[in-house]
Amino acid sequence: MSSAYLWGLLFFSLHAMVPITLAAVGEVIGETAGLFNIGLEGIMLTAALTGALGATQGGWPLGLLVGLATGLLIGLIFGLISTYAKGDQLIVGIGVNLFALGFVAFGLTLLGSPGFYIVPAASRLPKIHTAVGNLSPLVLVAVILPFLVYWLLNYTQLGLKLKAVGEQPAAADVAGLRVNALRLGATACGAALAGLAGAYLSIDWLGSVTKEISAGRGFIALATVVFAGLNPLLTLLGGIIFGFFDSLATWVANIPGVKEAVPWQMISMLPYVVTLLVVAVIGRVHFPSALGKPYSRE
């Protein structure tokens, strides 16, 4: 086991962490304010496509921007239905997932290359070169962002307001907070981060879009939010744990002799079994009492 192998594993884990942590930390913002968006998978998938096309057109800055904007837009639709229209958040989220599955495959078909789209090398996000491997700048973003959000939620007026509308919307309303506006803003910004995660997949990490490019990472992000109990810092930890064991499973499976001792299917279960064990040890976490319920003045 060379040190290059271990560095490689570490770096790959960090890259695998990024989409999960970005989407999860965004969802933390929304859930803190009381909105539960199960549509992360769909947002990531859609933004992977639109972000890739944006990058092809105007380079990676536009790609990231389009990814963010796609997430923001879907988040706004989700948020408007879930707040002012008092709709069922669950249904919208599931609808977003279904829509995205069809929309991305449909869009790829009409682009002329059904099933996949490769982002030109010139439109990719530049990498940070280090002695032991290349690093995506978004790794740094994904590491720093949870701290920023932690600060925002716990040490700013805005954060306190978001918590208030998530925990006690009626009291917040009486206190003069605009419950629906705050919720809408929070979930839209959160969804924008899921969009960024999608753009990361296509214009950075994997350099391509396929009809299943998100491969369940949106749901893993959702699980990470639950694991974190809405603590942004723990989404980073959760993303790293999952990213590490997910990568470890693949890396270990390639070492000669391992598959003979343990079937590869069992090795592939590793990240999921570990996550389950970790959450079983942690036990119960707290959620905002008004999570998932639309607020209406009685």
Partner: peptide, 25 residues
């Protein structure tokens, strides 16, 4: 020979991870 069955024909990340592991090995 380094070999692996990824169990998927769709998750691109598994292809990248496996190849990178094999290169490092």
């Amino acid at each position: 020979l380094l070999w692996t069955y990824t169990g998927t024909f769709s998750d691109i990340a598994k292809g990248k991870a496996s190849t990178e592991a094999q290169l490092k090995l």
